[in-house]
């Protein structure tokens, strides 16, 4: 069933600045199986607003969103149980501090499942399953979430959402504040989760290297407008990238520079450093 946006706009009412249009007439579809989507755009382009529409945390001021068959419009419908939609689409916020509150990691992960009326034993089993999925071991379950490192907190907060077993997992800037190694680790983790569970994963990020390497679909927002929706290969061949305030992945940057400088017959569109190295070696031996 997935998520379908139809001409969705959202306007924030502001007392001092006046009304502010965060997203503008967005139409897009996200299936609930096997997608790995990166949502990119410069700061203030409406990514987080779009993400919060995906599990009905905020309501469109125009247009409609269909989540798992339920239509969501401007008006709050008393018959619809919006809470159930949040089980279908799990949204992880940028800062784990916003959601961790229990005294042990296990209890914190169980908070989500228990809210959806799952039995205590089942929730406990889900917590064990989720902590493995995010690459931590069971010894973490008894620890205090506030004594963990930043990266571990992040993983625990993701486990808290994964334990609800959503079909679509939306992550708002999960890689921010991590070192390059931690970022890559986390992205590989998401890829594995997607492979194992066949869930759709939507990631908001600024890191073009990761987008190029991991995504199989990229959605670009620019000032509230949807300007690109397609695969990652074509995105970086576009001329408009600078207009959208997006950079190029390092591999493309370096290989293009080499190509221009030394007039090499090289294909700059390589996803990883290893591939770029192989390509260079091939050209150089020739």
């Amino acid at each position: 069933m997935g998520i379908h946006f139809r001409e969705v706009s959202h306007e924030y009412a502001s007392y001092q600045v006046g009304d502010y249009q965060a997203i503008n007439k967005i139409t897009l579809s996200i299936e609930d199986e096997n997608e790995f989507i990166c949502l990119v755009g410069h700061t203030g382009s409406g990514k987080s607003t779009l993400a919060q529409h995906m599990n009905a945390l905020i309501f469109p001021t125009e247009g409609e969103v269909e989540i798992n068959g339920k239509i969501i419009t401007k008006k709050r419908d008393k018959k619809t149980n919006y809470n159930l939609l949040r089980k279908h689409v799990g949204l992880v916020f940028q800062f784990p501090e916003y959601q961790l509150f229990e005294e042990t990691v296990e209890k914190d992960i169980m908070f989500g499942p228990l809210n959806f009326k799952i039995s205590f034993e089942e929730a406990k089993a889900k917590a064990v399953e989720a902590i493995h999925l995010v690459g931590l071991n069971e010894s973490y379950l008894k620890r205090n979430p506030f004594n963990l490192s930043g990266g571990e907190k992040k993983r625990v907060s993701i486990a808290g959402i994964l334990a609800m077993d959503p079909d679509i997992l939306v992550l708002d800037e999960p890689t921010s504040g991590l070192d390059p190694f931690g970022k890559r680790q986390l992205m590989e983790l998401f890829k594995n989760i997607q492979k194992e569970t066949k869930k759709t994963i939507v990631i908001i990020t600024h890191d073009m290297d990761l987008v190029y390497e991991f995504a199989n679909r990229v959605i670009v927002l620019n000032d509230g407008d949807l300007v690109y929706d397609g695969n990652e290969e074509d995105l970086f061949k576009k001329e408009e990238l600078t207009k959208w305030a997006l950079g190029l992945p390092e591999t493309i940057k370096v290989l293009r520079r080499l190509k221009d400088q030394f007039h090499l017959d090289i294909n700059p569109y390589q996803k990883t450093v290893d591939q770029a190295y192989e390509e260079l070696k091939k050209v150089m031996t020739k």
Partner: peptide, 19 residues
Amino acid sequence: DEANKIMLAQASRGADFSE
């Protein structure tokens, strides 16, 4: 602002503050 964000984060874990 923070309270609002926390409320949204917990709401996406099924903590519906209205019911």
